[in-house]
Computed example of a mutant assay.
Amino acid sequence: MKLVYVFDAYCGWSYGFSPTLAELTRRHPELPVEVVSGGLFTGARRVPIREFGYVQGANARISELTGVDFGAAYERLIADGSFVMDSAAAAHGMAALRQAAPARAAELAAALQEAFYAQGLSLSDAATYRAIAERTGLDADAVAAAFASPTARAAARADFRRAAGLGVEGFPTLLAVDGERVSVLAAGHATTAQVEQRLTALAATA
């Protein structure tokens, strides 16, 4: 069995789920984690953040439920409402990080979201991926080059297809995949204890 984590780097609820995923991977090193980028802000939804009037209220709710912090640098980045969240670019970046260290994909997904939500860095900027690579001990030149490559673009498109093929309609979604059997462990907010209960129930019916 493996875990499949479908998230969007620009999704606040995915950011809020990061501590739960980190704890699960710590408790279950035997379970590989596949990280799949979703396409939350693509096409017609790739617009200035001011058009999503619910952002600040949603962020307050996410903080309340999960304990994650939205940093001052992030607040400055979005303050005038002009910032555009581009999930395709973020998915290119996730593909580049994942290529550099496949076994650390869950950790790197969290680092990607921290770069935006804590440090106020754009996920469309190659310099952001250099910074993440340096902070996580990866080859910064290789990651930056991969971010701009056709390979990363193809991987992002494949991720979007993978998410749709799994029937994922919202982020984050955590799945347990065992052969042809796909079970939802979390959709949106969930605590570590709740996911553990669902894993235990799955094991009992295996």
Rank of each mutant, 00 (worst) to 15 (best):
A111T: 00
L108G: 01
A89E: 15
A115W: 05
F83R: 09
A100G: 07
A100E: 03
A126N: 13
A100C: 10
L138A: 11
I78G: 04
A131D: 03
D80W: 09
Y117H: 01
T128E: 02
D139I: 12
R76P: 02
G81R: 08
D69A: 06
I132A: 01
S124N: 14
A72T: 09
P102A: 01
M94W: 05
A101R: 02
A60L: 13
R76C: 08
A100P: 07
G120K: 08
E107N: 06
M94P: 10
A79R: 12
G67N: 04
L108M: 05
G71H: 05
N59R: 09
T66L: 06
L112N: 03
Y74Q: 06
G71W: 04
G57C: 08
M94S: 12
A100N: 04
A89H: 09
S122R: 14
R135F: 11
A95E: 11
D69K: 04
A126W: 07
V68N: 05
L121Q: 15
D141M: 14
A79N: 07
Q119P: 10
T136M: 11
A118Y: 02
G81I: 05
D86S: 09
E134C: 05
R130G: 14
V68G: 04
L121Y: 10
Q99H: 10
A110G: 11
L121H: 12
V84I: 12
L77W: 00
L77G: 08
I62C: 13
A115M: 08
R130W: 02
L97M: 11
S82V: 06
R135G: 15
Y129G: 02
A58F: 09
A58Q: 07
Y74R: 05
E134H: 04
L121V: 04
E75C: 10
D125H: 08
M85H: 04
R76D: 10
D80E: 12
A95M: 12
S87C: 10
A91M: 14
R76A: 14
A118E: 06
L65I: 02
G120N: 11
D141H: 13
A142T: 12
I132H: 00
A109Q: 03
S63V: 09
E114M: 01
A88E: 14
T128P: 00
G137T: 07
A142S: 12
T66Y: 07
G57D: 15
A131E: 00
R98C: 03
L112D: 03
L77D: 07
L108Q: 01
T66I: 05
D69V: 06
S63L: 05
A79G: 12
S63E: 15
Y129M: 03
V55P: 00
G137R: 13
R135Q: 14
R130S: 11
R76K: 11
A103R: 15
L97S: 12
A140D: 07
L121M: 15
G57F: 04
A91V: 14
A90D: 15
T136I: 02
L77V: 03
E134T: 09
I132S: 00
G137H: 13
S87T: 13
Q99L: 13
I62R: 05
I78L: 10
A110K: 02
D86H: 11
F70E: 00
E64H: 04
Y74C: 02
A103G: 14
V84Y: 00
G57T: 06
V55Y: 01
A60V: 11
